[in-house]
Simulated assay, not measured.
Amino acid sequence: MRIEQEIPPGCRPECPAGLSQSRKVVYAAIVANVAIAISKFVAAGMTGSAAMLAEGVHSAVDTGNEFLLLLGMKHSEKPPDEWHPFGYGKVLYFWALIVALSVFSLGGGISIYHGVVALRNLPALEDPTWNYVVLTLAALFEGYSWNKSRKELNERRRTDESLWQAVRRSKDASVFTVFIEDSAALIGIAVASSGIWLGHQFHNPYIDPVASVIIGLVLVAAAFALARETGGLLVGESIDRDQILKLKEMISSEPAVEKVGHLLTMQLGPDHVLLTAAVRFRRGLGINELEQAIDRLECAIKAEYPSVHHIFLETGSFRSSFRS
């Protein structure tokens, strides 16, 4: 027997504020990247720096990626319908995966290609002053955007985990995508600055194109990190183990529950989780008592985990779940 109860009115979760905060993070990244891309391309044209051109391509790709994230966020908010009864939350993960592929091919690939071409046809060293001015401005803009995403991650970070662990645990692809992109951008700015400075310091035209290749490799690494995180969410990642154990404890603590078998969850969106559990209720419960017990369980789960939107309690498969 499988039971899915309507969420009691007093237990319906409020509309999550996380989505609007995530959108602010993406808007900040768009503003920063547009300003940075324009200034980098102007500086690259004036100085002929391969590293600066690679950085300009990187910022232009990042700008397009943020618009893709906004597109994914908009479509993920569509209400459930006949063909998508659990909603469209995973659309955001699809577009985040496209962003990862874009960073890999357009950002990393073009930067590496341009660096290799520049190594074959070395550009003449020119006055790097504008490069330093633009890179300083880029660092300020990127730092602002990076700090916005960092603050949002810190809001969700547990006291015993690092920022990278918070990224790994996060289910909001828009926030951790901006954070990873901006982290790669700040590393790229540092590499570009070092390449330009060392090239002029040692009068060596090879260093600048090598910096472009290194920037491309940094972007490839960022793309793999993004693909790993978004790919797991797209194919049906569960909530983390600690939350699953706590949910089991909550259900087991209900007086009407005798035992809890398997408990499965799936992330359907940043703030949208499906939960199914094999539960054995005490024998002899009346229909009213059973309904009240289910209502109590759902209210307790909603109070602790507002992102759980669908709760299925299975009793028919209880024995088989314990055998497995």
Rank of each mutant, 00 (worst) to 15 (best):
Gln201Glu: 08
Ile239Gln: 06
Trp164Gln: 06
Glu298Tyr: 00
Ser252Glu: 11
Arg323Gly: 10
Ile7Tyr: 00
Asn204Gln: 06
Arg319Glu: 11
Ala28Arg: 02
Ala166Glu: 03
Ala225Met: 11
Asp182Cys: 05
Glu314Ala: 09
Ile287Thr: 12
Val220Arg: 04
Val175Glu: 02
Leu297Arg: 05
Ala166Pro: 04
Gly72Cys: 11
Phe41His: 05
Arg150Val: 01
Pro13Phe: 02
Val91Tyr: 10
Pro205Lys: 10
Arg283His: 07
Glu77His: 15
Ile180Arg: 09
Val34Asn: 00
Ala32Arg: 03
Leu92Cys: 06
Arg169Val: 10
Ser174Gly: 05
Gln201Lys: 13
Lys246Tyr: 05
Ser105Cys: 15
Ser149Asp: 07
Phe318Cys: 04
Ser49Gly: 12
Arg296Ile: 02
Met266Ile: 14
Pro255Asn: 04
Leu125Tyr: 11
Leu285Ile: 11
Val235Arg: 06
Gly109Ile: 14
Leu285Pro: 11
Glu314Tyr: 07
Glu14His: 07
Thr230Phe: 07
His84Leu: 07
Leu125Lys: 13
His75Asn: 09
Asn288Asp: 15
Ile287Arg: 13
Ile251Thr: 05
His114Asn: 15
Tyr93Lys: 08
Val34Ser: 02
Leu217Ala: 15
Ser162Ile: 01
Ala50Met: 03
Ala256Asn: 05
Ser49Arg: 13
Glu304Phe: 00
Gly10Arg: 15
Arg169Asn: 15
Phe86Asn: 13
Ile287Trp: 11
Leu137Pro: 01
Asn121Lys: 09
Asn147Met: 10
Gly109Leu: 13
Glu6Cys: 01
Asn204Asp: 12
Ser252Trp: 04
Val99Ser: 09
Val235Ala: 04
Gly195His: 04
Lys302Glu: 01
Ser102Pro: 09
Val308Glu: 01
Val260Thr: 02
Gly286Phe: 10
Lys40Ser: 04
Phe94Arg: 10
Val42Pro: 01
Leu268Thr: 03
Thr159Ile: 05
Cys11Asp: 01
Ala300Gly: 07
Ser307Glu: 12
Gln243Gly: 09
Arg280His: 08
Lys171Glu: 05
Leu297Gly: 08
Ser162Leu: 01
Ala192Ile: 08
Arg12Ser: 01
Asn65Arg: 13
Gln5Arg: 14
Arg2Leu: 11
Val116Gln: 10
Arg296Asn: 14
Pro8Lys: 12
Ala118Phe: 07
Pro306Gly: 06
Ile3Trp: 05
Gly232Asp: 11
Gly56Lys: 05
Glu298Pro: 00
